[in-house]
Amino acid sequence: MSEMLFSLLLFVIVATITPGGATTLATASGAQFGFRRSMPLMGGIALGLASLAALAAAGLAGLLHALPVLQVVMKVAGSAYLLWLAWKIGTSGPPNLQAKAAQKPASLIGGALLLWLNPKGWAMALGAAASFAALTSNPLRLAMILGSAFGLAAIVSLTLWCVAGVMLRRALRTERHWRIANAILGLLLAASIAPIWLA
């Protein structure tokens, strides 16, 4: 049992810390809005991932396998949402502190939607539910274990990526630097869609 819990811990750390749509968005939000204003986004992403993992463990995987059309719908909707976010990030310029009051970072709900519409998040959650089902025979207990593990790991990971964005903000001095950095972050977010369709 302790070996399996260690494996789960290692799995959720690697799954949440590696670059992807959520980590790129946390970095971009930290750079554009700072850490404090990015907290609702990060909370939404962590909540979205935790709830996704819990539902996968509770039996949602069976429904998705029974209705493959749902997987296609999720891929299309998720890809469209991520491309829209990538465009927003990629075309934004430097933060204008006077105009920032009018601009708002992604919300708690926006962060949760990012995960609910992200097939990579679904693949992670479904893979974890299948791989660690032997932890307990009780689906609700498994849902609590996976939901907690993914939620906590996501909070740590997103905090690190957002802080990296805040540090990036301090390093960028000119409007040209900001445009290049935002274009790179937007392209990375768009590129995170490729594995969704290649899997």
Score class of each variant (00 low, 15 high):
residue 1 M to D: 03
residue 7 S to M: 05
residue 16 T to C: 10
residue 17 I to T: 12
residue 19 P to K: 11
residue 19 P to R: 11
residue 20 G to A: 02
residue 20 G to I: 03
residue 25 L to P: 01
residue 30 G to A: 08
residue 31 A to C: 07
residue 32 Q to K: 15
residue 35 F to E: 03
residue 37 R to K: 15
residue 37 R to C: 06
residue 42 M to G: 02
residue 44 G to M: 10
residue 51 S to P: 03
residue 51 S to T: 13
residue 51 S to R: 03
residue 52 L to K: 01
residue 55 L to R: 01
residue 60 L to H: 02
residue 63 L to K: 07
residue 67 L to T: 11
residue 72 V to I: 13
residue 78 G to Y: 03
residue 79 S to M: 06
residue 83 L to P: 12
residue 87 W to P: 00
residue 90 G to R: 11
residue 94 P to T: 03
residue 97 L to C: 06
residue 100 K to F: 00
residue 101 A to T: 15
residue 105 P to N: 06
residue 110 G to T: 15
residue 117 L to M: 09
residue 118 N to D: 07
residue 118 N to K: 07
residue 121 G to V: 01
residue 124 M to S: 05
residue 125 A to Q: 02
residue 126 L to K: 01
residue 128 A to Y: 09
residue 130 A to C: 01
residue 136 T to E: 02
residue 146 L to S: 06
residue 148 S to M: 12
residue 149 A to F: 09
residue 149 A to Y: 12
residue 151 G to H: 05
residue 155 I to S: 10
residue 161 W to Y: 02
residue 169 R to N: 10
residue 172 L to D: 11
residue 174 T to C: 10
residue 178 W to A: 14
residue 187 L to C: 15
residue 190 A to W: 11
residue 193 I to G: 07
residue 194 A to Y: 14
residue 195 P to S: 06
residue 198 L to Y: 07
residue 199 A to I: 00
